[in-house]
Simulated assay, not measured.
Amino acid sequence: MNMTGLGVLLLLAGIGVLIFGILSFRKKNWPRRKTQIVIISSILAIIIGFGIIPSAETDEASTEKPKQEEKTKKIAVKPVLKAEKTFSTNDDGTIVIKGETNPGAEVSLIFDDKPTEVTTADDNGAFTFSLDEFDEPEEAVLAIEIDGETKEQPLSLALSASYETKLAAEAEEERVAAEKAEAERVERDRVAAEEQKAKDAKIAAEKKAEQARVAAEQKAAETKRAEAERAAAQPATSNEQGETVYITATGSKYHYDQNCRGLNNSNGETAVTIDEAEAQGFTLCGFE
């Protein structure tokens, strides 16, 4: 029996004896002195019972506290983190990181130059990270924090030999494609430059020909105008002055200049006035 039970028993016994003593005293069944002793004893039992009950509860409380502290200590969880130290990609560049930790714990995968990946362990403590298109070796750190205590594990993330070969082949294909595209671009630029050059040359030639045509037309017009002005001026002068011209026996033209090339094949010239030449049907030589 614990102290609380004993206190309650004394308390109840004291109350019962007190009531019995009082009733006996009233009925005068007991002598006065004996009744007084019973009443006093019952009162003492009641007082002792009252004293034992709080003391016992305090003792139980003090005993319970270490038990609760012990239980709390047992509840505190140590962080656990288990995983391989090195992981490699598969042939497609996917790297899968697996491990074990405390059930439901939040696990972080920390990189130096990439965003941190976070996942949560299942009810058995298993966790998994899956990273796609992993194309270069990396160093990373797995980390968990439980009840303010942190546990970390460094990882080396590598490329498998087959995936490195695949990456090298893809890089070579990209290089060849880039060189081909550059060669095609250079060829297109060369053809375009030649076409532009030919077009510019054609435009220049057409412009030059047009300029020559215009110049020739202008020169012909000026020559014709000059001949017309001279033809118009010479007969008037000849008529006024009775100028001498030269004719041939077989020709039909008269000439102001005895050295005119129209007289190169003549066998002799005759000097007459212009009025006489025109009267005979002669006209002005086209060379003058």
Rank of each mutant, 00 (worst) to 15 (best):
E136N: 07
K207V: 10
A158W: 03
D200Y: 07
I95F: 02
T223E: 12
A171V: 08
A236C: 10
A249F: 09
L159H: 02
S55W: 14
S266L: 09
S88M: 11
E187A: 15
D112M: 05
R175P: 01
K27C: 07
F111L: 06
T150P: 03
E152N: 12
L142H: 00
K208L: 14
Q218M: 13
T58N: 14
R26N: 09
I39W: 00
F127T: 01
I22Q: 04
A183V: 10
G286P: 02
L263V: 03
K253P: 00
F25G: 00
G148R: 06
A221L: 13
R185W: 07
R213F: 09
E194W: 10
P235C: 03
A279E: 02
I146L: 07
A220C: 10
N267Y: 04
A271K: 08
F129V: 00
E184C: 04
P137D: 08
A140K: 03
T4K: 12
T248P: 04
K219N: 09
R230N: 14
G16P: 03
K208N: 15
I37H: 08
S108C: 04
E69G: 08
K166Y: 05
T128F: 01
S42P: 02
A231W: 13
V17W: 03
Q36T: 10
V186N: 06
A277W: 01
F87M: 07
E182W: 08
A121Y: 02
A45R: 01
G281H: 04
E70V: 11
E195L: 13
T223G: 05
P115E: 13
N90P: 06
P154E: 01
I37V: 14
A178F: 11
L155T: 01
K219H: 11
S108H: 08
L142T: 03
I39R: 04
V176K: 10
L157F: 04
T150E: 09
G262D: 02
G148E: 05
E69C: 09
G242A: 12
T150H: 06
V107D: 01
L155C: 00
I46A: 08
T270I: 12
K208C: 13
T150G: 04
Q241N: 14
E173F: 06
N259I: 07
C285K: 00
S88F: 10
T86R: 14
E229H: 06
K65H: 15
L81C: 05
K199A: 15
N259M: 10
G104T: 08
Q196V: 05
A277G: 01
K74A: 15
L155W: 01
R213M: 12
R230Q: 14
V141W: 02
E269F: 07
D135G: 05
G16I: 11
E100M: 02
R190P: 01
G268C: 05
A220H: 07
I203F: 11
E194A: 08
P235F: 10
L284C: 00
S156Y: 04
E117C: 03
G99S: 07
A181C: 09
L131Q: 06
A279N: 02
E60D: 12
K253T: 03
V141Q: 05
D189W: 08
I43P: 01
M3C: 08
P103I: 06
A143M: 07
A192W: 07
I146E: 00
R185T: 08
S41V: 13
A209F: 11
G51N: 12
E276S: 03
A140I: 02
R33K: 11
E149S: 07
K114H: 11
